[in-house]
Design a protein around this nucleic acid. Sequence first.
DNA 1: TTAATATTGCTTCATAATGAAGCAATAAAA
DNA 2: TTTTATTGCTTCATTATGAAGCAATATTAA
Lengths: 248, 248
Amino acid sequence: MEFNKIIEEKSAKAWDIYIPNLSVDCVVFGFHDVTLKVLVTRLKDIDLWALPGGYVLKTENLMEAANRILFNRTGAENIYLQEFKVFSDLNRSGGVFDEFPDTLWNKQRFLSVGFYALVDFHQVNLVMDDISDACEWKSIDELPHFMMDHRSIFDKALITLRKQLNDKPIGYNLLPEKFTMPELQKLYEIILAKKLNRGNFYRKMLRYDILIKLDESRKGGAHKAPDLYQFDIEKYEKALKEGLNNGW
Amino acid sequence: MEFNKIIEEKSAKAWDIYIPNLSVDCVVFGFHDVTLKVLVTRLKDIDLWALPGGYVLKTENLMEAANRILFNRTGAENIYLQEFKVFSDLNRSGGVFDEFPDTLWNKQRFLSVGFYALVDFHQVNLVMDDISDACEWKSIDELPHFMMDHRSIFDKALITLRKQLNDKPIGYNLLPEKFTMPELQKLYEIILAKKLNRGNFYRKMLRYDILIKLDESRKGGAHKAPDLYQFDIEKYEKALKEGLNNGW
DNA sequence: TTAATATTGCTTCATAATGAAGCAATAAAA
DNA sequence: TTTTATTGCTTCATTATGAAGCAATATTAA
C-alpha cells in the first residue's frame, strides 16, 4: 500500500486511541565493530530518514510507550531507556504533511519526548513496519539527513549519554556480556569523543572494582589476545549511585 | 469566587487555547537564611498544596510556557529553567476532580513536564492567583503534603539538581550577586545533603578560578567578617562546559 | 620453524589533587 | 580588655592522575 493511503487510514484510528499532540522518539544506540551505531528508518515514498518513534496510547505511560515502540522494531524487551528532553518547538515538523488535510493526525502540532535506548547490538532483530522501506544501523558519524528535528534529537541524545557516562550503566547495556578492556576503552572514547591513555584507563577501571576478569581471552584477532571481562552488576550499580568519578 | 466555579469557567476556555493533556510543573528553588526553599501554593477550598504549574498555550513551546507561568507567580523574567522529567503515570492525578463532569479540562489525563527553576530569593515577589489562597516559600525539609504526584516531582528535581551541580550554573542562579565562601559551601552542603570539609572546599573553589574576590567583607554577623565574592561568569560558564569535576 | 610485529597487561616515576588537621587573624560579644 | 567562634589559608600525609615504558603474547611474515 502506498504511503499516503496508509497514513490517512492510520490517522482515522489514531484520534481514538492515542494521546493527542504527543509522540515519542527514540535514539537507539548499539556498539558494533568498534563503532557506535544508531537505528534509523526511512519513510516510504517521501524518502526521508527518521528516528524510530510512535504515539502514546491513552492506556500507557511514556516508558511503556517507548518499550512497545522499540519492541516492535527490535523484538527486544526490557530495553534500557532514558528520557532526556521534550522537543516542543512550534516549527519542528517541517512541511512533511503539507499536502494532507488539516484533520490528519500526523499534521497536528506534536511534542516529542526524546528517549535514548541502549541495546546489545547482537540481540536485536530489525523489523520493518508498513510506513518504512528501510530500517538499519548507521554509524554515528555517517548519519543520513533526517526529517523534522530528528538530527537535533540525536545530537542531544549523544550529549546526554556523554554526561551520564559516570552515572548510568551505559557500558553494561551497550556491550555484550563478555568484552575486553580495549573494547570498553573504545566505547568510552567514542562517547566522549576523545582519546584516553590506555594504561591509565586500565588502572582506573580496575580500581572501580566493577569488573570481573574471566579465565578466557579473545583469541582470533591479530597480536596478543586480550582478556575477557564482564561487569559485576551489583558492584557496578552500587558504584553508579555515587557516580564513578564522584565530584564532591 | 469559589473554586468549583472558577475551575469550570476556566475549563470552557482551556479547550481552545491550550495543548490538551499536557501541563508544566515547576520546582522553584531559592536560597535564604542558609536554607534551600521551594515555592508552593495552596489551592482554594480543596486545601491542597501544589507546585506552581499551568498549561501550555498552542502558540508557545515548553520553555516559553514555564517562563510565562513563573513570571505570573514571581514577577521575574528570564528565570533559569531546566527541564528534568515528564510525569506520565496513568494514576498520577489522584481523585482531585472526581466530582466534576468528565468534560472538565482539569479532569483529563495530564502528562506534566517537570522543570526546576533557580531564582535569587530576594528578586522574587510572590503573586497569588485566583485559584490559590496561599503562595509561599517553604524550606525543603518542611514541605507540606502535596496533591497528586507533586511530592515525587520535587524529589526528582532535587536529585537532578544534585547531579547537575558540576555542570550547570546552580550557584550563580541561586545566590545573590555577592556572597561569602561559607554561604556557597552551605548551599553545596544542602544540595548534596552532606557536610564538606571547610578548608578543602575553600581550596577547591579557588582553584576552579571562577570566583572574583571583592574588596569587601560581610560585616555585622558575629565573629570574623567573611570576604565577599562574586562569580566570574565567563570563566564559570567555560569551566562548566567541561564539568567542574571532570571525570575523564 | 623462526623471527618480526603490534597489541596487551601492568608497572614505574613525577606531578597534581584530596583528606585531615591546625594556626593565626579578626569581628563581635562578654 | 578578654573571650569566643568563625574565617583565611597552610601544612602534611595519602591518593589519584598523566606520561612513559617494559615484558608477555598471539598472530603473521619470512
